[in-house]
């Protein structure tokens, strides 16, 4: 069976929680932990865990600071992170277009 490597999905980003985080950040310069928690609906522990993984992969940059004497965690996509989330959504769009066009010959590696 012919494999279409152009449709490889990014396993790190494809996880729903991380995909939500990256998608929110893609429309911003940066956002703090509270905003990400509000918009993604993730629990504090889940969000922390995902951000740690994304930071380890070089997709986000995390800055811990104090705002009005309270700790504040600020998160921004790196250039690589922006590139990869954009590419990932393009891949998903391609997959959707393929399924709508009924292409039986494309095998999608994940």
């Amino acid at each position: 069976m012919e494999r279409n490597d152009d449709l490889t999905l990014d396993r790190l980003i494809h996880e729903p929680g991380r995909l939500a985080i990256m998608t929110v950040l893609s429309s911003l310069r940066d956002a703090d932990f509270v905003f990400l928690q509000r918009t993604t609906g993730l629990t504090k522990g889940n969000l922390s865990s995902h951000l740690t993984k994304l930071e380890a992969a070089g997709l986000v940059e995390i800055v811990k600071r104090f705002v009005r004497k309270k700790p504040n965690t600020n998160v921004a996509l790196t250039a690589v992170g922006r590139q990869r989330i954009t590419h990932h959504w393009e891949q998903l769009e391609r997959l959707r277009n393929l399924s709508e066009s009924g292409d039986e010959h494309a095998a999608v590696p994940v």
Binding site: V34, S48, L51, E55, I62, K64, N72, T73
Partner: peptide
């Protein structure tokens, strides 16, 4: 209030 900061992320 959400269960907020001191997330440990980036520590």
């Amino acid at each position: 209030r959400l269960n907020l900061e001191d997330s440990g992320v980036g520590a």
